[in-house]
């Protein structure tokens, strides 16, 4: 059976929901901004797919959900007309000698996930995986099953494919998901507004994050690299064409203003200690985003009759969205 469905919010979850639903149903997308959805957290993100590393911070069930999501990404990207960079060659976690305590505590907190677990690495094993890190680190961990995607490319490609599928778009429309007009016109409404739902969704808050995008032709890292540091834990996510995303700060604040000098210095100096080739990198952008989060930092999929809401993905957008969207879509099919 084919339904008329409204997807409200065209960030990461909105795009995934529209892609999934437009295979069978008539989909209309509402978005407060334009097709770029510049305010959405998924646009700013580094788009790491790191269920093992995140298991250090989140509960086991969420990390397992992440593993499930990672497995869904290839078939999602296969639907798209344009190619989107996706990589799953594992990731690397390293620490400088003086910070080995932070690496040890990270290793202790890793939760084994369905047979996947971290593999401790010596300095020479690190250089086998990432030759350009040779001699820089004596200790690290390899996390298999981890990867990343190019979120900028995914944003563009998903829009292109949805246009091909004749999905209708209502941009610059801030709409009340509970309004009669929507209820009358659509069989289902999928609320993917993220922080845009803050005024109506209880206990939803923004968690500020800042990321830097660099063009660094002197750096050849093939996998995401995390640096354990007592104060500046960062990750470096390599994207195609020598682009690297350095992220991310995490600040309990609703402020969506430009990145501060302090945050920028922290991110960039930590990246420089991983690879000195970043010294001559070009700064392509320094972006700020607000991650939508509930007070337990866990995502929620909820349903009230014809209204289905997906929200609170916190720092786990790319890691969890495919499974959460699948959950929401299953309620319709």
């Amino acid at each position: 059976m084919s339904y008329n469905i409204a997807v409200v919010g065209f960030g990461l979850t909105g795009r995934l929901a529209a892609l999934e639903l437009s295979l069978k149903h008539n989909v209309t997308v509402y978005e407060a901004g334009d097709e770029q959805a510049l305010d959405s957290a998924g646009r700013v993100a580094a788009a790491m797919l790191a269920p093992l590393a995140e298991s250090v911070l989140c509960e086991q069930d969420l990390a397992l959900l992440g593993l499930d999501s990672v497995a869904r990404w290839p078939s999602i990207l296969a639907q798209l007309d344009d190619e989107v960079f996706f990589q799953q060659q594992g990731s690397l976690v390293v620490a400088h000698q003086q910070d080995k305590g932070d690496l040890q505590s990270f290793i202790q907190r890793l939760k084994p996930l369905a047979g996947h677990h971290g593999h401790p690495l010596t300095g020479s094993q690190i250089s086998e995986l990432e030759p350009e890190l040779a001699g820089r680190f004596n200790q690290g961990v390899y996390l298999p099953c981890e990867g990343q995607i190019d979120n900028q490319a995914f944003y563009q490609a998903s829009f292109n494919t949805l246009k091909q599928r004749k999905v209708s778009f209502k941009f610059a429309q801030k709409i009340d998901v509970g309004c009669e007009e929507l209820k009358q016109s659509f069989d289902y409404i999928i609320d993917c507004r993220g922080l845009g739902a803050k005024s109506t969704v209880c206990k939803l808050r923004g968690v500020r994050g800042e990321v830097v995008r660099l063009y660094a032709p002197e750096v050849n890292l093939t996998r995401p690299v995390r640096l354990m540091h007592p104060r500046y834990p960062i990750y470096i996510a390599p994207k195609p064409n020598y682009q690297y995303v350095i992220g991310a700060t995490e600040i309990e604040s609703q402020d969506n203003g430009p990145a501060t000098v302090r945050s920028t210095l922290e991110l960039l100096s930590a990246a420089y200690t991983v690879h000195s080739g970043f010294a001559e990198a070009r700064v392509l952008s320094i972006q700020t985003g607000l991650r939508p989060a509930f007070s337990d930092n866990r995502p929620q999929v909820t349903q009230q009759q014809q209204l289905i809401s997906i929200n609170g993905l916190y720092r786990h957008g790319y890691l969890l969205a495919p499974s959460l969207v699948a959950d929401a879509v299953a309620r319709i099919n």
Binding site: E252, S253, Q254
Partner: peptide
């Protein structure tokens, strides 16, 4: 008083 934190009404963390 964290960086970029507003303690104005509506800051959920401060409210908590």
């Amino acid at each position: 008083l964290r960086r970029q934190q507003s303690v104005a009404a509506g800051d959920d963390f401060w409210q908590l």
